[in-house]
Amino acid sequence: MKTNNATNANRVGSFFFQYAIYFVLVFLVLGITAIDPSFWSINSLHDILLQSSTRAIIALGAAFVLITGGVDLSAGRMVGFAAVLSASMLQIQEYSHRFYPGLPDLPLWVPVLIAIFVGLLVGLINGVIVSRFSVPPFIATLGSMVAVLGLNSLYFDMKPNQSQPIGGLRPDFTSTLGSGYIGSGVYSIPYIVIIALLVAGLVWVIFNKTILGKSMYAIGGNIQAAIVSGINVKRVLLYVYAAAGALYGLAGVMEAARTGGATSSYGNMYELDAIAACVVGGVSTAGGIGTVPGVLVGVLIFGVINYGLTYIGVSPYWQLIIKGLIIIVAVAFDIRKYLTKK
């Protein structure tokens, strides 16, 4: 990547384009600090990371699909479904409105794995629809997005719950995957930040060091050439959508743990946040391009905007306008790296 673009453009400009999103992040942090210096604190960092963790995992899932040249609209609703599923099985015995009144305390990992597995299953179905039936990813996942919301609402509306928000979650759940941390005081690191980093590490290894990863970039880069090269395109797509689904499942579980509850409206529009973070982080919606550090920076940019602009008292309506502009400007800049000069 270093030799990229070295010709004719001047060095400084080329350097700027290459790392444009990092500059945006630094600029945002400095700008907010200039307005209110108290923003510059371990506390802010702590809160931003906490909020960004589940977002990062969803965005990494979305990146899997985007790199193959697809798009996954089902992310948000799958997060919601996984949150409701895991929460429904992890309430304390004393809670008055239990989802499953007679259910004994399950080992923590059972509901967690069930939720992740359901995510994986829905992802697998997405994969089958896209790869075997050649339905365009936008349509396939639009369909599953709607269907999963229906499924989640049905489940959420079952007796005796009947669409009551699920509360009274077990403390071992909410602390392990939610509010818990190692260390103490300012030097603490929340568990969910660690989980997000581990997931990011794992995804980085998949993207860069495995046959699956290289095949993904190949499919996104030139699907015809991938077919000719004898890559099993259908199988790779199946794995990609399944992996993305599993990540959404995990993110849903963490979202339930972090907030201490769940409703069927959880995860609404998260897929768009995830895609926005990806494209701001340099993932190409045309496929074939994208890195894990890029996605993480993309997520952090939105984390800083959400937290920082609220911190300095910018109205949430203005925040939306700023977010929208950043998506457009960041991509308009980033795309210059890849425009072929004619």
């Binding site: 046959i211 290289k214 095949s215 970039y217 190949a218 880069g221 030139n222 015809q224 050439a225 991938a226 077919i227 000719v228 090269s229 004898g230 890559i231 074939g288 391009i289 890849y338």
Partner: peptide
């Protein structure tokens, strides 16, 4: 159209058929 992966490095382009 059916050969190169334009944005990928030479290494990936070379090993792609036989990873």
């Amino acid at each position: 159209a059916t050969g190169i992966f334009p944005v990928l490095p030479i290494v990936e382009n070379t090993v792609m058929a036989n990873m």
